[in-house]
Amino acid sequence: MSRIEKRFAALKDKNQAAFVSFTMAGDPNYDTSLDLMKALPKAGVDIIELGMPFTDPMADGPAIQLAGQRAIKGGQTLKKTLDMVTAFRKTDDETPIVLMGYYNPIFIHGVEDFIANAKAAGVDGLIVVDLPPEEDDELCVPARAAGLDFIRLATPTTDEKRLPKVLENTSGFVYYVSITGITGAATPDENAVGKAVAAIKEKTELPVAVGFGVSTPEQAAEIAKVADGVVVGSAIVRSMADALTVAGPPKKSFQKDVISAVKKLANATKRARK
């Protein structure tokens, strides 16, 4: 059983939804980012999504765009992102880690090398926004063959006819994008999300996590009632931006501030079904 499967199974036994956090690797620099990553599981994060910074994140809103720019400015590279995972795994071999980003840095790193290095570092799954099923031969098929999960986005524009194609090579979990739009942009309509999640679950045994636009503990709790997981990115990344000094370096309270925001979201998710 993979780490992702184990985690969803354990949460199912407790009748809880998974709380999935998104942070950008290397934001605002390698050390701060790694320290924060290490503190996430204790704050209630069940699955860590780690962003691979890219100059041109076409599906992301301003908060995550800026996080990527800070990380690149701080010297983050794809290799350093994999190093972070290696470092994290020295003290935590259970929390699933999913890398999320865009294809070009992976393509330039070399697909074969990337898969081997990610696997060796202890990465569990990949979300690559600009690789739809039509481009599965690029990365999805070889990554799955090597034992990495390839987590696909399903969206409100993925209709009934297209859904099987989206689910075909998906593994780990399905990431339902709750709005048409970019990350952090709008508030999802919980009724519509509930229906969409149910429709996906009719077609797959995989857990369904919901993200894009979930930003408050209240929203997280609503989503946790209808989905197997709640993904929060922009709201956490914004709390990180707020905990930076005007000049850029983190305030002394950086980790405390961010972890406190994460805890509120995680607790709301865990208590939702009680």
């Binding site: 076409m58 600009d130 739809p132 986005l153 969206t155 989206v166």
Partner: peptide
Amino acid sequence: FVAETLMP
């Protein structure tokens, strides 16, 4: 090479 939202 586009996000799923745009694919349809």
